[in-house]
Structures are given as C-alpha cells and as structure tokens.
C-alpha cells in the first residue's frame, strides 16, 4: 500500500511540523516552480545558441557547452545598444513629464476640502482601473491623421506658426513622441498617488510660519514643500520609470518599428525571429542595466531613511 504509507508519512510530517510549515512551504514552492525556475531558464538560455529544432535552442556538444556569442552580439550590433538608449531616454522623459504634470495635481489634492479631495482622488484612480489596452487604443484613435484631435492640432499649428507651407495633418503615430505621450497618459496615476500620500503628511504649519515671516509663496514652495517631498518624488519616479523602461505593449502599438524600445526587441527576437537565446540575453541585460540598479537604490535608500529617522 504505497499510497497509504505516503499518506501516513504526510500526516506524520504535518503533525511534526504543523500548519506553520504549510503556510511557508505552499507559496514558496509555487514561486520556486513558476517564477524562480523560469528565471533560471532565461539565465541558462542566454548562454545557448539558436538551432533549427523544437524548442529552438542547443548547447555545445563538448566542454564548456555554453557560448558567450550572444553577449558579444549585444555589443557588436548597434540595434541593441540603440534600443537600450532609447528605452532609457523615453522612460526618463516620461518620468519627468509625469512629475511636471503630476506634482501640481498632487499638491492641489492636499489643498482642497475633504469632500472635493475624495472626489478628485476617485477621478485620479478611475482611469487606472479602466483597461490599460483601451487607454492605449484611445490614443491610437486620437493620433490618427483624420481624427478631430489631429485636425485641431494641425489647425492650431497652421494659425500659430506662420510659414510658407501649411500642414494637412501632423504625423504622430509610430514615433517616439507617440510612445512618450501614451506612456505619460498611462503612468500618470502612478506618479500622482505616491506624491499625494507624501504631500498629505507634510506639516502645513511650517508653510504658515514661513508665510507669516514674510516669504513669498514660491519661496515657501522651493524652500519647504519641495525638499520635504523628495521621498514622494523618488517613489513616484520609480513607479513610472521601471515599468516604462521595459514597456512592451505601447511601443508595439504606437512606436516606430525601425527604432524600437528594448521591450519590443525582446518580444520580436522571441516570436518573430524565434531566437530564444538572444531574447534571453537581451532580457538579462535589461535586468542588469535597468532593474538591478533601481532595486539596489531603493534598498539602500530605505536603509538610509531608517537610519535617519529618530528613534522613538
């Protein structure tokens, strides 16, 4: 009775270690199997070569079995370096624009009455709950050359910028401009909410004291509010920058195919070129170049913050 004894042993194990181990082990095993193992596969796959078999990869027949050709290709082919640079610059520009639009919005939320604050907060969160894809889709419609939005912008351009030639439409789709615009649109709530959470906790009496002592409002802002809100700026900035740098959907739908972001390069290598090893190498490089530094930064920043905070 193999199953019976196995059942008995499981019962004995549970009796000995109890519910505590079950609570730890169940999610642990799940994450090991479906997150850690795939991650290891990516790491190992980046050292293989593409092959005409299924699944499309192979390792060397003799020692050292692995190849570093993919990593070399990463530096030789300018496509990859360019894609990384575009990703970093697009993500950085998106973060800065989100900050410029989002900061006054968050500040305004802290300055209005409680009822209005709740309504405004709901209005900030609402687009976040509607489908991400549909928000991208909305802009595809607006940016098209026949849309009212494009026609309006073209009219504005033609009246405001007097030049010999008048434009019939503004080409917006399939460009870095489109990618940044849609990323700002999709990620703005991620900037506003942490900023609001930070600004709301600030001690307003400091501002009042400074005003009473004769500071101009913009001096109060520069000397008090802005320095105190830096943790919120960093939190919001990371929440925008990290997903923006690895974004796949937005560059695939509205981006320039000849000048792609790195997320799209990974997707294209994997599906269109069926080059699993190269896609894995680019993915590992994305993790090392973009994700690890931001992770390390937040780790050390939270430690530094804990050290700065006075002990109660």
């Amino acid at each position: 009775m193999a199953s019976g004894s196995a059942h008995f042993r499981l019962k004995q194990w549970f009796h000995r270690t109890g519910w505590r181990s079950t609570i730890i082990a169940t999610p642990y095993v799940w994450l090991l199997a479906f997150f850690f193992l795939p991650f290891l596969i990516v790491l190992v796959m980046s050292l293989a070569t593409q092959a005409d078999v299924s699944p499309p990869f192979a390792f060397g027949a003799e020692w050292p079995y692995v190849t570093f050709d993919n990593i070399a290709r990463l530096f030789e082919d300018s496509l990859y370096i360019r894609a990384y640079l575009i990703s970093i610059s697009n993500a950085a520009i998106t973060t800065v624009i989100c900050l410029i639009i989002g900061y006054p919005m968050a500040l305004c939320l802290t300055r209005v009455g409680k009822t209005w604050r709740n309504i405004f907060l709901m209005l900030v969160i609402l687009p976040f709950w509607t489908s991400f894809l549909l928000r991208v889709y909305a802009w595809i419609g607006l940016m098209g050359t026949n849309s009212w939005f494009n026609k309006g912008l073209t009219f504005l351009y033609n009246t405001l910028v007097p030049s010999g030639s008048t434009l019939t439409s503004i080409p917006m789709m399939n460009s870095n401009f489109a990618v940044i615009l849609v990323m700002v649109y999709c990620y703005l709530p991620f900037m506003v909410l942490p900023l609001y959470a930070n600004l709301e906790r600030l001690d307003f009496t400091l501002n009042e004291a400074s005003m009473d002592l004769g500071s101009r409002p913009w001096r109060v802002f520069l000397d008090i509010t802005l320095p105190l809100s830096i943790p919120g700026i960093i939190a919001g900035g990371l929440l925008v920058f990290i997903p923006a740098s690895g974004e796949f959907v937005i560059p695939s739908l509205v981006g320039d195919a000849s000048d792609p972001m790195i997320g799209r390069v990974i997707g294209d290598e994997f599906t269109a070129a069926r080059d699993w090893p190269m896609a894995s190498t680019v993915a590992v490089a994305l993790l090392i170049l973009l994700v690890l530094p931001t992770m390390a930064y937040t780790h050390f920043d939270s430690k530094a913050q804990a050290a700065r905070e006075p002990n109660p």
Binding site: P27, F34, F35, P38, I41, P243, G246, E247, I266, A283
Partner: peptide, 20 residues
Amino acid sequence: LVTAPLIMPEIITGISSLML
C-alpha cells in the same frame, strides 16, 4: 521571490513562463 515579480518587466515574465 515575493518582491521580484513586482518589478520584473512583464515581457520577461511572459517569455520566461512560456519557455518553462
């Protein structure tokens, strides 16, 4: 393991799950 999926770019989670 609990924090990593939060910051992993979705495209990497996608291709790694498919390979698995």
